[in-house]
């Protein structure tokens, strides 16, 4: 229960689905959800090397008077004691600084777009900047709450993919659900197995390798289809800039717009310790 997830609460039916996913995630991995009910339509995250202003749409301020009560009710339904976050510092009178000392953050697919547009659309630029700079993984929820029963890790052999694998293992151990690795082959299988053997502690590497599916290169969509519908997808993101995204496309965008599963994305600044 030492891990804490920050959830930005939206007092709408869509926000309820998002919040239920946060609560379920916390319940599974025994983390503590902390809810921030926005008091204005913007706030700031000060990361180590950048500051990100999150501009919320007006739906985050819907019925402010019932927001706390509704959040408490959902806490109660999940059997978790309510915990709320109150900003201590303000950059300007209506611009609170939200702490970045959390272990997880829950984001809808875009924090700055109206609910109707979200669906499986683009991940907002802000969410991508958060992922790029945050020391914590970001839970990008699916449009509708559905309990996940397994963990799917997308592993491509990079430094960030190793981080994602560590995170998947950690969550698998904490929640007791099975983990499957999905790899789109760009090199021989042995190359990926070697990375896992080298980078993961003894014993855990074997555990991770137990359930590993490889797909040949052009079959990216096939691989995404093979991901179980009730899986939490864990993946690493480079957070490269908009020019590279335009030229080469963004894997994260592609994945999130193709599958409806909740995603747990770990950025380049995030490091995962493998402690149970």
């Amino acid at each position: 229960m030492n891990y804490v997830l920050l959830h930005i609460f939206r007092n709408t039916p869509f926000g309820r689905e998002t919040f239920l996913q946060s609560l379920y995630f916390c319940k599974c991995i025994q983390a503590r959800p902390v809810v921030y009910i926005p008091e204005s339509d913007k706030f700031l995250f000060y990361f180590d090397k950048d500051t990100v202003q999150v501009d919320l749409d007006r739906s985050y301020l819907t019925s402010a008077e019932t927001a706390k009560q509704n959040a408490e009710q959902l806490f109660e339904e999940m059997g978790i004691s309510p915990s709320f976050y109150t900003p201590k510092n303000y950059t300007a009178s209506t611009l609170p600084d939200i702490s970045t000392r959390f272990d997880y953050l829950c984001c809808p697919r875009s924090v700055s777009d109206v609910s109707s547009k979200i669906g499986l659309g683009h991940i907002g630029a802000r969410v991508r900047r958060i992922i790029q700079h945050a020391r914590f993984p970001v839970l990008i929820t699916s449009p509708v709450f559905k309990p996940w029963k397994r963990i799917a890790v997308l592993f491509g052999g990079s430094e960030n993919a190793v981080n994602a694998l560590n995170l998947g293992l950690k969550l698998s151990m904490a929640s007791g659900v099975d983990m499957t690795i999905f790899t789109l082959k760009e090199k021989e299988e042995a190359h990926y197995r070697k990375i896992v053997k080298k980078r993961l502690p003894e014993g855990l590497g074997e555990q991770a390798e137990k359930d590993w599916l490889f797909f040949d290169r052009p079959a990216f969509e096939e691989m995404l289809y093979a991901i179980p519908h009730d899986a939490l997808v864990v993946m690493g993101a480079y957070g490269h800039g908009p020019i590279k995204d335009v030229l080469f496309g963004s894997k994260l965008e592609k994945i999130q717009s193709t599958i409806g599963n909740p995603l747990l994305v770990i950025g380049p600044e995030s490091r995962v310790e493998l402690r149970p």
Partner: peptide, 15 residues
Amino acid sequence: PEVIYAVSRYGGLLR
């Protein structure tokens, strides 16, 4: 004040 605040608390990070 925003500049002074950023300097004293967040290592001069400004948007």
